[in-house]
């Protein structure tokens, strides 16, 4: 099977994720969309690794997973504490840090 098709899939997933980040207001959904984008990137890395015949891409995919896991920990914690204080998970409600 042509590996380029996986790249198409990765691009598709990334676009879905990006659109979700931009149009959804719920922090949890935005958060999942970011995960989707990360995974799309992972997929692309693995495909590239296969296409070029070396392991660099796969190694970076592992790094990404670790980073994503760390991000989940921090991100969910922020969302939860945000929800606790403002009783809302909407990203638009948290706009205090503007000038």
């Amino acid at each position: 099977m042509n590996p380029v098709n996986y790249l198409y899939l990765a691009a598709l997933l990334f676009t879905i994720g990006a659109t979700g980040v931009l149009i959804r207001r719920n922090a949890i959904v935005v958060f999942m969309c970011i995960e989707l984008m990360l995974n799309a990137c992972n997929l692309a890395f693995v495909v590239f690794s296969r296409m070029h015949g070396n392991l660099d891409g796969q190694i970076i995919a592992f790094f990404t997973m670790v980073v994503a896991a760390a991000e989940v920990v921090v991100g969910l914690a922020i969302i939860v504490s945000l929800f606790r204080t403002r009783h809302s998970a909407s990203v638009d409600d948290a706009s205090l840090m503007k000038l």
Binding site: V21, L22, I23, R25, V30, V91, D92, A94, S95, L96, M97, K98, L99
Partner: peptide
């Protein structure tokens, strides 16, 4: 700098 995370995105 309007404070909306999505516009930063």
């Amino acid at each position: 700098q309007n404070g909306f995370a999505r516009s930063y995105a």
